[in-house]
């Protein structure tokens, strides 16, 4: 079964194996997103993040959630050597890069804690999942084609421990990622990881930092990457084995 709702300027879809979750649980999942949106949306004048941007609220006086979110974002800035940053070029604090992923993460905890073992949650192109799609098949995630929203570039069976997949691109919302490498030719970057915050942040960082960042971050964080560079795809070995029929001779890591 599946249900959808709008939040954070996009749409959340939740698929579950078996019976649809009850109204009360659905309400709790939706509230996770609304709470984050209320505090962090740059599109709402009354959000805490907008008040910080206008200088009306200092970070010191902000909520624990906001400060720990900012700390998470700064930690990722260090880990990616600045390829990911919670600051816009004009210096305004922008936590969008981690907020959506944190909301997805928390919503997933709500679902699992409610005893639902097989679920798949998509929010604006980020996907987090648990369990399987059916007894026979794993959850299988399509990667959108940056050149045609009606087509898929690849389909990825989510076996094993990887639970999260996120994609960053320049195709939607214009060039919304501030590129740290002006020479980056990457148009879309998909990252598969154990958790959604890692997947989301690294997809953004690699899109921003280019191929050098891809090489470095994919190894460092043991994640799988599928990137679109021009008309070519760039893919990490384990993922390549999953999405192509070619014999893979590369040594496994």
């Amino acid at each position: 079964m599946r249900w959808t709702f709008e939040t954070m300027g996009t749409v959340v879809s939740v698929a579950t194996l078996g019976a649809e979750p009850g109204l009360e649980l659905r309400g709790r999942v939706e509230r996770v997103f609304r709470d984050y949106d209320f505090e962090f949306s740059r599109y709402r004048n009354d959000s805490a993040i907008s008040r910080i941007a206008r200088g009306e609220l200092s970070l010191m006086d902000a909520s624990d959630t906001l400060r720990s979110t900012y700390a998470t974002a700064l930690e990722w800035r260090s880990l990616t050597r600045g390829a990911f940053t919670p600051h816009r070029p004009d210096g305004v604090v922008d936590l969008d890069g981690v907020v959506k992923a944190l909301a997805i993460n928390d919503a997933g905890i709500v679902l699992s804690d409610a005893g639902i073992t097989d679920w798949c949650l998509g929010c604006g192109g980020d996907v987090l999942l648990a369990g399987r799609a059916s007894e026979e098949a794993p959850w299988t995630i399509g990667v959108a084609d940056p050149d045609d929203p009606a087509l898929l570039l690849a389909e990825i069976p989510m076996n094993g421990s990887d639970r999260a997949i996120a994609t960053s691109g320049v195709s939607e919302r214009g060039e919304h990622v501030w590129r740290s490498d002006a020479g980056s030719t990457l148009r879309q970057v998909t990252v598969i990881a154990d958790d959604i915050v890692t997947a989301d942040v690294l997809a953004t960082a690699i899109l921003s930092g280019g191929i050098d960042a891809l090489e470095q971050l994919a190894r460092q964080h043991s994640v799988e990457v599928l990137a679109v560079a021009g008309d070519e795809l760039i893919i990490t070995p384990r993922l390549r084995a999953l999405v192509t029929e070619r014999d893979v001779s590369e040594p496994s890591r």
């Binding site: 996009t10 798949c120 192109g125 299988t140 691109g169 879309q188």
Partner: peptide
């Protein structure tokens, strides 16, 4: 596929 990963859509 059950879900799609793509660049953030509006």
């Amino acid at each position: 596929v059950q879900m799609v990963s793509g660049a953030t859509y509006t």
